[in-house]
Computed example of a mutant assay.
Amino acid sequence: MTNDFSVLPVVPPDEGEVPDGVRTAVAGAATISRGVWLDLFGHVDFARSPEAWLHRMTHRVSYDRPLLVAVAGARADLVGLKVDDVLGYAYYDVPTADNLHTLDALELGVRPSARRRGVGSALVAAVKADAAARGRTHVMGWMDAPIAGTDETGALRSRTDPITARPTAGSAFALAHGFAVAQIERYSVLTVPAVLADAEVAPGYRLEAWIGPTPPHHRAGLASLWTAFGNDQPLGDVALGEEAWDADRIAATEAASAAVCERCTAVAIHEASGEVVGASQLFRDLDKDEAATQGVTQVLRTHRGHRLGLALKRHNLRVAKAGWPALERIHTWNAGENDHMWRINEALGYQTRAAEICWQWIAPSETTD
C-alpha cells in the first residue's frame, strides 16, 4: 500500500450475493482489459465481460483464478469503490491438479492515465508474493509483439523457435522484472470463407462433430488425447508438464464454462477399433457471435501420417459455421517450431498477424546452483 494506490485481492463468494465492491473491482478490471485489447488489435474479441470474469472466478475446475487490483488511494478494502478508482489489474491461473509449481496465463493491464507510476510493478510484485506464499516457483504470461525480420538487430528470440519478435514497451517491462523469453508462438487469424471445402478423411477413419458438451461415450477418448497433448506439444523452455485428464474432468470442465462459452468439437475415430484417435476444438464466448478461438488439435502418434489434423479442422470449421452462422474469424496460436501445424493452418487460409511471447519468471532459488 502507498498513499497513491493500494493493491488488493478481489474475492467473490462462490455462492450468494456478490458484494458491490467486488462487482465494481471486476468491472474496472474488465474496462482496462477491453482498452488494452482494443489498442493491441483494434478489436475486443479477447475481452471478457464483467459477468464472464465473475463466472470464471467462481466456477473453477483444476484452476483457481485470482484477481488483484490496484486502486486509487490508501485502501484496506473495496467498500465504496468506483470503477474509475481501479488503476490496474493482474489476473492469472493457479493450477490445482497439475503443474503445481506454476502460476500461469498472467494477464496484466494498467489504465493509460496511471502508467509510469509504479502500478504495474506493484502488481507484478504482488503476483510474485502470491507465488511464494503458494510455494510456486514459476510464473508465466503471454504477450503479443510484431514479428521481427530474420536478421533484425535487437530482436527477441527463444532457444527453440525460428520466429523472432520486435522489442516493445511491454517486453522491456517484462525483462526489467526478471522475466525471460521461454517460447515464441505464431498468432494467426482465419477469415472464415463463404464457401468451405469438404473434409477428406483417410480410409479406415470417420469424423464426428458436435456443438456443446462432449457425449458421455466420447469423454474418455477425448481425455486420453488431452493427456497425450501435454506430452506432445512443443514447449520450448516453458516449464509445463503433463495434465492428467479423465472423463470426469472433461465433463466438469465443460459444465463449469457452459454459461459463458460454447465449444465445437470434432473427433476422428479409427473404425476398426472404435478408438477416438484425434480431436480438434473451437471455442466461442456466448456474447461474441463473430469470433472464435482454435483450441487444441491432437492426433495420437500411432495414427499420424493420414492428414487427420487437416481433416479434423476442416470438418470442425464446417460444423461451427453451420451452428454459428455469424462466425467471421477464428484466432489461433501455434508454437513457432511446430511447422506441421502451421502448414495445416496455412492450407486452411490462416494469416500470421503477430508473435506471441511466453514470458517466464523463475524464483531466484530455482535458478541458482
Rank of each mutant, 00 (worst) to 15 (best):
H138I: 14
G80P: 09
R159L: 13
I163T: 12
V124K: 00
R117S: 03
G88N: 05
V195E: 15
A176W: 14
A105Y: 02
R134M: 11
V119N: 03
V189H: 06
L87K: 05
T160W: 03
L123P: 00
A165I: 07
V83L: 13
G120Y: 01
L108A: 00
G170Q: 09
A126E: 12
S158T: 06
R134L: 14
P146A: 02
T164V: 13
R111T: 00
R115D: 05
R159Q: 14
H138K: 12
H101L: 12
L100I: 08
R115F: 01
G118D: 04
Y187L: 11
G118L: 02
A126M: 07
I163R: 03
L156G: 06
M143L: 14
A194H: 13
A174H: 08
D130T: 13
W142H: 08
A122N: 05
P162M: 07
A169K: 07
E185W: 10
H101D: 14
L81V: 05
G109M: 02
T168H: 09
L103F: 07
I147S: 07
K128A: 09
V110P: 00
I147E: 11
A105S: 14
D84E: 15
N99T: 05
A125K: 01
V181E: 01
R159A: 15
D93P: 03
G178K: 02
A180V: 10
K128D: 06
D98A: 09
T168Y: 09
T160I: 02
L123M: 02
